[in-house]
Write a protein that binds this DNA or RNA. Sequence first.
DNA 1: TTAAGTGCAAATATTTTGCTGTCAC
DNA 2: GTGACAGCAAAATATTTGCACTTAA
Lengths: 148, 148
Amino acid sequence: MPFPQTEIPGRLQAELAARGIRMTEQRRAILKVIETAKKHLAAGQILRKAQRLNAAVDRSTVYRTLELLKRHRMVDELDLMHMDGDGHYYERKLARDHIHMACLRCGKITEFMSEIFDSLKQQLERDCRFSIVVARLEVGGYCSECRH
Amino acid sequence: MPFPQTEIPGRLQAELAARGIRMTEQRRAILKVIETAKKHLAAGQILRKAQRLNAAVDRSTVYRTLELLKRHRMVDELDLMHMDGDGHYYERKLARDHIHMACLRCGKITEFMSEIFDSLKQQLERDCRFSIVVARLEVGGYCSECRH
DNA sequence: TTAAGTGCAAATATTTTGCTGTCAC
DNA sequence: GTGACAGCAAAATATTTGCACTTAA
Protein backbone atom coordinates (compact mmCIF):
# COMPACT_ATOMS: atom_id res chain seq x y z
CA MET A 1 0.00 0.00 0.00
CA PRO A 2 1.25 3.49 -0.79
CA PHE A 3 2.03 4.64 2.71
CA PRO A 4 5.77 3.99 3.01
CA GLN A 5 6.66 4.28 -0.71
CA THR A 6 9.89 6.24 -1.18
CA GLU A 7 9.88 8.14 2.08
CA ILE A 8 13.19 9.19 3.54
CA PRO A 9 13.19 10.35 7.19
CA GLY A 10 13.97 14.05 7.45
CA ARG A 11 12.80 14.62 3.91
CA LEU A 12 10.15 17.15 4.82
CA GLN A 13 12.69 19.10 6.83
CA ALA A 14 15.12 19.02 3.91
CA GLU A 15 12.45 20.20 1.49
CA LEU A 16 11.52 23.12 3.69
CA ALA A 17 15.20 24.04 4.07
CA ALA A 18 15.59 23.90 0.29
CA ARG A 19 12.81 26.45 0.03
CA GLY A 20 14.57 28.71 2.51
CA ILE A 21 12.04 28.20 5.27
CA ARG A 22 13.22 28.64 8.83
CA MET A 23 13.45 25.52 10.99
CA THR A 24 12.48 25.46 14.65
CA GLU A 25 12.36 22.76 17.30
CA GLN A 26 8.58 22.85 17.17
CA ARG A 27 8.46 22.37 13.42
CA ARG A 28 11.00 19.56 13.64
CA ALA A 29 8.73 17.73 16.09
CA ILE A 30 5.62 18.24 13.98
CA LEU A 31 7.37 17.17 10.76
CA LYS A 32 8.71 14.05 12.43
CA VAL A 33 5.23 13.09 13.59
CA ILE A 34 3.83 13.49 10.08
CA GLU A 35 6.68 11.59 8.46
CA THR A 36 6.58 8.65 10.81
CA ALA A 37 2.80 8.41 10.98
CA LYS A 38 1.44 4.98 10.21
CA LYS A 39 -2.03 6.28 9.58
CA HIS A 40 -3.81 9.52 8.77
CA LEU A 41 -3.69 11.90 11.70
CA ALA A 42 -6.10 14.61 12.78
CA ALA A 43 -4.68 17.94 13.95
CA GLY A 44 -5.32 17.07 17.58
CA GLN A 45 -3.44 13.80 17.26
CA ILE A 46 -0.51 15.53 15.61
CA LEU A 47 -0.48 17.98 18.51
CA ARG A 48 -0.40 15.25 21.16
CA LYS A 49 2.30 13.23 19.42
CA ALA A 50 4.41 16.32 18.76
CA GLN A 51 4.14 17.31 22.41
CA ARG A 52 5.64 13.97 23.37
CA LEU A 53 8.71 14.96 21.37
CA ASN A 54 8.70 18.55 22.55
CA ALA A 55 6.32 19.53 25.34
CA ALA A 56 6.39 23.18 24.28
CA VAL A 57 4.52 22.62 21.00
CA ASP A 58 1.32 24.61 20.99
CA ARG A 59 -1.94 23.86 19.22
CA SER A 60 -1.70 27.02 17.14
CA THR A 61 1.78 26.10 15.99
CA VAL A 62 0.42 22.81 14.73
CA TYR A 63 -2.27 24.58 12.73
CA ARG A 64 0.18 27.17 11.44
CA THR A 65 2.62 24.47 10.39
CA LEU A 66 -0.08 22.44 8.67
CA GLU A 67 -1.08 25.59 6.81
CA LEU A 68 2.53 26.07 5.74
CA LEU A 69 2.82 22.48 4.55
CA LYS A 70 -0.43 22.68 2.64
CA ARG A 71 0.69 25.89 0.96
CA HIS A 72 3.88 24.17 -0.16
CA ARG A 73 1.93 21.08 -1.24
CA MET A 74 3.84 18.88 1.14
CA VAL A 75 0.77 17.48 2.86
CA ASP A 76 -2.72 16.65 1.69
CA GLU A 77 -5.78 17.44 3.73
CA LEU A 78 -8.46 14.76 3.85
CA ASP A 79 -11.90 14.33 5.32
CA LEU A 80 -12.10 10.55 5.23
CA MET A 81 -15.86 10.87 5.11
CA HIS A 82 -15.76 12.41 8.60
CA MET A 83 -15.64 9.02 10.22
CA ASP A 84 -15.02 10.76 13.52
CA GLY A 85 -16.15 14.35 14.02
CA ASP A 86 -15.75 17.16 11.56
CA GLY A 87 -12.02 17.66 11.54
CA HIS A 88 -9.45 17.02 8.88
CA TYR A 89 -6.79 14.41 8.48
CA TYR A 90 -3.33 14.98 7.12
CA GLU A 91 -0.84 12.87 5.25
CA ARG A 92 2.50 13.38 3.63
CA LYS A 93 1.99 14.08 -0.06
CA LEU A 94 3.80 11.49 -2.12
CA ALA A 95 4.79 11.42 -5.75
CA ARG A 96 1.64 9.76 -6.94
CA ASP A 97 -1.91 10.54 -5.87
CA HIS A 98 -4.04 7.81 -4.44
CA ILE A 99 -7.66 7.18 -3.63
CA HIS A 100 -9.01 6.85 -0.11
CA MET A 101 -11.78 4.40 0.65
CA ALA A 102 -13.41 4.56 4.06
CA CYS A 103 -15.47 1.65 5.33
CA LEU A 104 -18.62 3.03 6.90
CA ARG A 105 -18.92 -0.01 9.14
CA CYS A 106 -15.45 -0.84 10.48
CA GLY A 107 -13.81 2.51 9.76
CA LYS A 108 -10.87 0.99 7.89
CA ILE A 109 -9.19 3.29 5.39
CA THR A 110 -7.91 1.64 2.23
CA GLU A 111 -5.60 3.41 -0.18
CA PHE A 112 -5.46 2.61 -3.85
CA MET A 113 -3.49 3.85 -6.82
CA SER A 114 -5.02 3.55 -10.23
CA GLU A 115 -4.04 4.30 -13.79
CA ILE A 116 -7.67 5.01 -14.49
CA PHE A 117 -7.51 7.73 -11.84
CA ASP A 118 -4.44 9.18 -13.55
CA SER A 119 -6.29 9.13 -16.91
CA LEU A 120 -9.28 10.81 -15.36
CA LYS A 121 -7.11 13.66 -14.12
CA GLN A 122 -5.60 13.98 -17.59
CA GLN A 123 -9.09 14.15 -19.02
CA LEU A 124 -10.02 17.01 -16.69
CA GLU A 125 -6.88 18.91 -17.62
CA ARG A 126 -7.56 18.42 -21.31
CA ASP A 127 -11.35 18.49 -21.71
CA CYS A 128 -12.05 21.15 -19.08
CA ARG A 129 -8.83 23.04 -19.65
CA PHE A 130 -8.40 22.93 -15.89
CA SER A 131 -4.96 23.05 -14.33
CA ILE A 132 -5.04 20.64 -11.39
CA VAL A 133 -3.22 21.53 -8.20
CA VAL A 134 -4.81 18.97 -5.91
CA ALA A 135 -7.20 16.11 -6.61
CA ARG A 136 -8.96 14.29 -3.84
CA LEU A 137 -11.07 11.20 -4.38
CA GLU A 138 -12.70 9.94 -1.22
CA VAL A 139 -15.05 7.00 -1.27
CA GLY A 140 -17.37 5.78 1.45
CA GLY A 141 -18.86 2.32 1.45
CA TYR A 142 -18.24 -1.19 2.69
CA CYS A 143 -14.91 -2.97 2.58
CA SER A 144 -14.52 -6.58 1.49
CA GLU A 145 -14.92 -7.81 5.07
CA CYS A 146 -17.97 -5.74 5.90
CA ARG A 147 -19.96 -5.86 2.68
CA HIS A 148 -21.73 -9.15 3.42
CA MET B 1 -24.04 21.11 -16.85
CA PRO B 2 -25.56 18.61 -14.45
CA PHE B 3 -27.37 20.97 -12.13
CA PRO B 4 -30.88 21.00 -13.59
CA GLN B 5 -30.85 17.48 -15.12
CA THR B 6 -34.10 15.64 -14.43
CA GLU B 7 -35.20 17.51 -11.34
CA ILE B 8 -38.89 17.73 -10.61
CA PRO B 9 -39.99 20.29 -8.00
CA GLY B 10 -41.33 18.60 -4.91
CA ARG B 11 -39.42 15.44 -5.70
CA LEU B 12 -37.47 15.41 -2.44
CA GLN B 13 -40.70 15.80 -0.53
CA ALA B 14 -42.28 12.96 -2.48
CA GLU B 15 -39.30 10.70 -1.88
CA LEU B 16 -39.38 11.30 1.84
CA ALA B 17 -43.13 10.63 1.88
CA ALA B 18 -42.53 7.39 -0.01
CA ARG B 19 -40.19 6.35 2.76
CA GLY B 20 -42.82 7.11 5.36
CA ILE B 21 -41.04 10.12 6.78
CA ARG B 22 -43.11 12.80 8.44
CA MET B 23 -43.41 16.12 6.65
CA THR B 24 -43.39 19.45 8.46
CA GLU B 25 -43.58 23.08 7.35
CA GLN B 26 -39.92 23.50 8.31
CA ARG B 27 -38.80 20.51 6.27
CA ARG B 28 -40.87 21.66 3.33
CA ALA B 29 -39.05 25.02 3.39
CA ILE B 30 -35.61 23.42 3.68
CA LEU B 31 -36.33 20.92 0.90
CA LYS B 32 -37.57 23.67 -1.37
CA VAL B 33 -34.39 25.66 -0.82
CA ILE B 34 -32.23 22.66 -1.68
CA GLU B 35 -34.28 21.77 -4.75
CA THR B 36 -34.32 25.23 -6.21
CA ALA B 37 -30.70 26.09 -5.39
CA LYS B 38 -28.71 27.31 -8.37
CA LYS B 39 -25.43 26.64 -6.64
CA HIS B 40 -24.00 24.64 -3.77
CA LEU B 41 -25.21 25.96 -0.46
CA ALA B 42 -23.60 25.92 2.97
CA ALA B 43 -25.74 25.09 5.99
CA GLY B 44 -25.92 28.75 7.02
CA GLN B 45 -27.14 29.79 3.58
CA ILE B 46 -29.78 27.07 3.61
CA LEU B 47 -30.91 28.39 6.99
CA ARG B 48 -31.25 31.98 5.80
CA LYS B 49 -33.10 31.05 2.62
CA ALA B 50 -35.41 28.67 4.45
CA GLN B 51 -36.21 31.37 7.00
CA ARG B 52 -37.40 33.58 4.18
CA LEU B 53 -39.97 30.90 3.38
CA ASN B 54 -40.79 30.19 6.99
CA ALA B 55 -39.37 32.44 9.68
CA ALA B 56 -39.69 29.74 12.33
CA VAL B 57 -37.00 27.49 10.84
CA ASP B 58 -34.21 27.02 13.33
CA ARG B 59 -30.55 26.35 12.74
CA SER B 60 -30.71 22.98 14.48
CA THR B 61 -33.63 21.90 12.32
CA VAL B 62 -31.51 22.63 9.26
CA TYR B 63 -28.69 20.46 10.55
CA ARG B 64 -31.09 17.73 11.61
CA THR B 65 -32.78 17.76 8.21
CA LEU B 66 -29.44 17.68 6.37
CA GLU B 67 -28.48 14.69 8.51
CA LEU B 68 -31.74 13.00 7.53
CA LEU B 69 -31.19 13.68 3.85
CA LYS B 70 -27.62 12.44 3.99
CA ARG B 71 -28.75 9.26 5.73
CA HIS B 72 -31.24 8.67 2.95
CA ARG B 73 -28.66 9.53 0.30
CA MET B 74 -30.76 12.35 -1.01
CA VAL B 75 -28.06 14.98 -0.70
CA ASP B 76 -24.30 14.91 -1.05
CA GLU B 77 -22.01 16.74 1.31
CA LEU B 78 -19.08 18.56 -0.28
CA ASP B 79 -16.09 20.57 0.88
CA LEU B 80 -15.33 22.37 -2.37
CA MET B 81 -11.75 22.69 -1.18
CA HIS B 82 -12.95 24.89 1.68
CA MET B 83 -13.02 27.94 -0.54
CA ASP B 84 -14.68 29.81 2.27
CA GLY B 85 -14.27 28.64 5.84
CA ASP B 86 -14.41 25.08 7.03
CA GLY B 87 -18.04 24.28 6.53
CA HIS B 88 -19.74 21.92 4.14
CA TYR B 89 -21.79 22.46 1.05
CA TYR B 90 -24.83 20.48 0.07
CA GLU B 91 -26.44 19.52 -3.18
CA ARG B 92 -29.31 17.36 -4.31
CA LYS B 93 -28.00 13.95 -5.23
CA LEU B 94 -28.81 13.17 -8.84
CA ALA B 95 -28.81 9.93 -10.75
CA ARG B 96 -25.24 10.22 -11.93
CA ASP B 97 -22.24 11.27 -9.89
CA HIS B 98 -20.15 14.17 -11.04
CA ILE B 99 -16.81 15.73 -10.31
CA HIS B 100 -16.37 19.14 -8.68
CA MET B 101 -13.55 21.39 -9.75
CA ALA B 102 -12.90 24.51 -7.67
CA CYS B 103 -10.80 27.33 -9.09
CA LEU B 104 -8.39 28.46 -6.40
CA ARG B 105 -8.22 31.93 -7.92
CA CYS B 106 -11.76 32.97 -8.92
CA GLY B 107 -13.66 30.44 -6.81
CA LYS B 108 -15.75 29.15 -9.68
CA ILE B 109 -17.07 25.61 -9.25
CA THR B 110 -17.24 23.51 -12.40
CA GLU B 111 -19.10 20.24 -12.53
CA PHE B 112 -18.18 17.45 -14.89
CA MET B 113 -19.49 14.00 -15.66
CA SER B 114 -17.11 11.44 -17.04
CA GLU B 115 -17.25 7.86 -18.21
CA ILE B 116 -13.71 7.46 -17.00
CA PHE B 117 -14.95 8.37 -13.54
CA ASP B 118 -17.66 5.74 -13.84
CA SER B 119 -15.05 3.17 -14.91
CA LEU B 120 -12.83 4.11 -12.02
CA LYS B 121 -15.64 3.45 -9.58
CA GLN B 122 -16.26 0.10 -11.22
CA GLN B 123 -12.57 -0.69 -10.84
CA LEU B 124 -12.71 0.05 -7.11
CA GLU B 125 -15.77 -2.16 -6.69
CA ARG B 126 -14.10 -4.98 -8.60
CA ASP B 127 -10.40 -4.79 -7.74
CA CYS B 128 -10.80 -3.71 -4.13
CA ARG B 129 -14.02 -5.61 -3.55
CA PHE B 130 -15.36 -2.41 -2.07
CA SER B 131 -19.07 -1.65 -2.16
CA ILE B 132 -19.37 2.06 -2.89
CA VAL B 133 -22.05 4.10 -1.19
CA VAL B 134 -20.74 7.56 -1.95
CA ALA B 135 -17.83 8.73 -4.11
CA ARG B 136 -16.58 12.27 -3.96
CA LEU B 137 -13.96 13.63 -6.32
CA GLU B 138 -13.04 17.22 -5.59
CA VAL B 139 -10.33 18.96 -7.52
CA GLY B 140 -8.62 22.26 -6.78
CA GLY B 141 -6.66 24.19 -9.38
CA TYR B 142 -7.05 26.88 -11.99
CA CYS B 143 -9.94 27.15 -14.41
CA SER B 144 -9.48 27.92 -18.10
CA GLU B 145 -9.82 31.66 -17.46
CA CYS B 146 -7.42 31.80 -14.52
CA ARG B 147 -4.69 29.39 -15.55
CA HIS B 148 -2.68 31.89 -17.60
C1' DT C 1 -53.06 9.84 21.00
C1' DT C 2 -48.30 9.64 20.66
C1' DA C 3 -43.98 9.19 18.53
C1' DA C 4 -41.48 12.22 15.92
C1' DG C 5 -40.08 16.84 15.21
C1' DT C 6 -38.97 21.60 16.76
C1' DG C 7 -36.99 25.79 19.18
C1' DC C 8 -34.07 27.44 22.29
C1' DA C 9 -30.04 27.85 24.76
C1' DA C 10 -26.05 25.91 26.00
C1' DA C 11 -22.28 22.82 24.97
C1' DT C 12 -18.80 20.96 21.99
C1' DA C 13 -15.43 20.75 18.43
C1' DT C 14 -12.34 22.76 15.38
C1' DT C 15 -9.67 26.34 13.76
C1' DT C 16 -8.02 31.18 13.71
C1' DT C 17 -6.21 35.47 15.50
C1' DG C 18 -4.00 39.41 18.22
C1' DC C 19 -0.45 40.35 20.78
C1' DT C 20 3.82 40.08 23.08
C1' DG C 21 7.98 37.88 23.72
C1' DT C 22 11.64 34.69 21.58
C1' DC C 23 14.80 32.68 18.43
C1' DA C 24 16.90 31.20 13.80
C1' DC C 25 19.69 32.92 10.60
C1' DG D 1 19.92 42.70 14.69
C1' DT D 2 15.63 41.66 12.74
C1' DG D 3 12.02 39.43 10.64
C1' DA D 4 9.91 35.15 11.17
C1' DC D 5 8.02 32.18 14.59
C1' DA D 6 5.92 30.64 19.01
C1' DG D 7 2.89 30.64 23.16
C1' DC D 8 -1.09 32.07 25.26
C1' DA D 9 -5.62 33.34 25.70
C1' DA D 10 -9.49 34.71 23.56
C1' DA D 11 -12.45 34.81 19.52
C1' DA D 12 -14.57 32.94 15.60
C1' DT D 13 -16.77 29.31 13.17
C1' DA D 14 -19.35 25.15 12.64
C1' DT D 15 -22.05 21.74 14.48
C1' DT D 16 -24.47 19.03 18.14
C1' DT D 17 -27.30 18.16 22.13
C1' DG D 18 -30.71 18.15 26.19
C1' DC D 19 -34.99 19.26 27.27
C1' DA D 20 -39.62 20.94 27.29
C1' DC D 21 -43.14 22.06 24.03
C1' DT D 22 -45.62 21.19 19.60
C1' DT D 23 -47.55 18.76 15.79
C1' DA D 24 -48.28 15.28 11.92
C1' DA D 25 -50.35 11.19 11.11
